[in-house]
């Protein structure tokens, strides 16, 4: 069995000793000395927070060796997550939840993953994309469904069976405004008719 060479860097001696004992307890892993970090196939980094100092070290390591990193940390924000990913972090383990098995599993996955991020990390990145879209749209009174709050109000009443006149009365709009809203949403979203617009809004979970 080929052993996987692992380098370890922790921000405090206790974590260094604890994680080293976890790694050394696994026959498939071999811990390399700090000076031999360049030979490691995986780097394990432990820190309470992703401080500037830790980020600088990760950047240097990424630039110099490009080794995949398993990060053990107390807490991490979304911005820090992006920074970590940029620095070749491929797995993040919450400090309080680290066990020898979990650590070994992450190290093996990092070693065998060919640099590809695991699904849970990709999932976190996709959450960033979702949040980003909300941050762009919400302050503008828009949402990812492509419907404005006014359009949603009109569609909701259409779904309740109200005609144009009744919708106008309910929302205190003119009939012309209601017609414009309906025309706008069907035209913009390339919907065929009112029923199609209602179906679209239902499918998008907006009404």
């Amino acid at each position: 069995m080929e052993q996987i060479r692992v380098a370890l860097q922790a921000s405090d001696p206790l974590s260094q000793a604890g994680l080293a004992s976890y790694l050394q307890s696994r026959p498939e892993l071999v811990l390399v000395r700090s000076a031999d970090r360049g030979e490691a196939k995986v780097l394990v980094v432990s820190c309470d927070r992703l401080t500037g100092e830790v980020v600088a070290m990760l950047r240097r390591s990424a630039a110099e060796f490009g080794t995949p990193v398993v990060l053990v940390t107390g807490e991490i924000t979304e911005t820090e997550l992006l920074t970590a990913v940029e620095c070749r972090v491929v797995a993040i383990l919450p400090r309080a939840a680290v066990t020898a098995d979990r650590l070994a599993h992450s190290v093996l996955a990092a070693a065998n993953g060919g640099g590809v991020m695991p699904p849970n990390l990709v999932g976190e990145l996709l959450k960033h994309i979702e949040r980003l879209q909300r941050d762009v749209l919400t302050p503008n009174g828009l949402n990812a469904s492509g419907l404005t709050p006014r359009e949603i109000d009109v569609l909701r009443l259409m779904a309740d069976g109200l005609d144009t006149n009744e919708i106008a009365g309910e929302l205190c709009y003119s009939e012309r405004t209601v017609k414009n809203v309906i025309y706008g949403v069907t035209h913009r979203l390339k919907l065929r008719n009112r029923s199609h617009a209602v179906a679209y809004a239902l499918r998008a979970g907006m009404i």
């Binding site: 060919g114 990145l125 492509g146």
Partner: peptide
């Protein structure tokens, strides 16, 4: 660099949402 890999169905859904957001923006 091939580090970000997403299955086609999920990627298509994300792309579609992003295109809609871009159009609205």
């Amino acid at each position: 660099e091939g580090r970000l890999v997403v299955d086609s169905a999920r990627a298509d859904a994300v792309i579609s949402g992003l295109e809609r957001t871009l159009s609205l923006a």
